[in-house]
Write a protein that binds this DNA or RNA. Sequence first.
DNA 1: ATACTAAGTTCAGGAATTTTGAATATGCAA
DNA 2: TTGCATATTCAAAATTCCTGAACTTAGTAT
Lengths: 287, 287
Amino acid sequence: MQTRALHTLVRVSILGSFAKVAEEMNTTISTVSMQIKAIEEQLSVEIFDRSHRPPKLTPVGKAVCEKAKLILGAEKELLALSGQENELAGNFRIGFVATASVRLLPDFLKNAQENALHASFELETALSEVLEARVQSGILDAAVVTESERERSDLEYHLLRRERLMFAVPKKFADQPVEALRSKLPFLQFNPGSGIGKLIQQHMSGSSTTGNKQDIVLESVEAIIACVNEGLGFTLLSEPDIRRYASATCGIVPMKTDELVRHLSLAIPKSRFSDGARQQLIGLFGE
Amino acid sequence: MQTRALHTLVRVSILGSFAKVAEEMNTTISTVSMQIKAIEEQLSVEIFDRSHRPPKLTPVGKAVCEKAKLILGAEKELLALSGQENELAGNFRIGFVATASVRLLPDFLKNAQENALHASFELETALSEVLEARVQSGILDAAVVTESERERSDLEYHLLRRERLMFAVPKKFADQPVEALRSKLPFLQFNPGSGIGKLIQQHMSGSSTTGNKQDIVLESVEAIIACVNEGLGFTLLSEPDIRRYASATCGIVPMKTDELVRHLSLAIPKSRFSDGARQQLIGLFGE
DNA sequence: ATACTAAGTTCAGGAATTTTGAATATGCAA
DNA sequence: TTGCATATTCAAAATTCCTGAACTTAGTAT
């Protein structure tokens, strides 16, 4: 019997969804489904009632989960005997993509002080691509980056935040369809060399005809929103970034059609950390 | 983490030898070694001190075993929730090779009465080959047979007894080398159509020149030993069989060179029983 | 109702792990 | 020291596990 599958089961019983667990464990829904099915077959027991969505635990399923927790608890004790450092200890260099540092860094440092007593951190900020290269070369131990579609290299990505991209437009234009704005207002584009900048550019070039107003490229989220606040243009940025700086004169318009989402993830080299340490590090980024 | 490996570890800690555990679990020493190594690597801990033979548990190793027992205990509770019958229940047809039935059957029935309350048994005896065929065809649920080198078919074999073959010779010839006897006494050969008979024949034809006395074939162990008791010939049979019938006039001579051993095993179809039931059934054959 | 969407299942292949048998090494005992 | 039983190593074979794509289904919006 595989304790990994039991762990999956317990997480599903807590999060209530295969999909969330798959994401949490950096694997696919398919795998989660297979693992659960394997347990059900080994025990010849129906753990989930599939006639509901999300699947609900059967009474036996609940009992199985309870026993599984006991096993996992015992396993944890066993792992605690491990000779290797299973706790975050020592000095670590962590990179933050610039656009995330403002919001994530303070909480991270606070959590680190409270929950990682044996670890100290050196921090730096740069573009996602640069950070990833530095993690790969071993200069950094880990980095918070905007995940993109390109090669996932040899790094492991652990999702920290999922941020929806939204339009910030001056209040007086807020009721117009954003497609129409392109011809009336300059589009304020965040640095297209950055990870999120690429996401934005990709969307704007795909969904609109080129505007006749002159677009402006800026490297500061704060500056961009300040411009929107003043009615000088509109922009597309991640929701938390917009809300941080938006004044009363700034309207926030969610995207209609395809949800464009920015994934902020912690990138680490495969097997750079022990399971316990990795878990602890990810925990420092809060929920 | 694989509970199978933990189980292996715990058994090794109890039996004190990789080899014994490999046999008990119907697998190879190599597998046992690999499983233990895997645990040691996962924990980065040295569980056994290899500078001793048999390997002795280190202090950490002892601690690991204790935790492993907790995990296995919890796992057992989980398995107990199983929907399937995990206990021997119902009616079973068991075959016994004739030469083993005298000694094994009484104890088996006693154990069954005490430890398999929900099971009843129908028994039959025949030659090993016949029994194996009947197990394969589903007429029998299991059979105690003399294991031979030939095709292991689709059956699973669980070793029950390891019996050494010895010579039984009249006392007055007991101090002579057995090789010399062949020319002075008839050899009393047990039915060469049976599993053990083949083992015996194989050995006798290989190690001695053909005797000038007339050899005798009998189908009864008891009759053969009775003849030896009377000084009418000598024989080669399994130690417990000889001791059962030998009188004071019968000498028992162990084999010098290669240990010829008879393996009495329980043959069952693969996956005919659940793990628990199989375990229980094997247990009914005593130590 | 109908169609849509998000969530789970199934399946086949590919990746990773485990098992095995043969060859090799090592401790213990004579 | 040899002999022997036992354990380790190694590479191939068997097995298990994971993945991505296609498919199904429950809940929801139209």
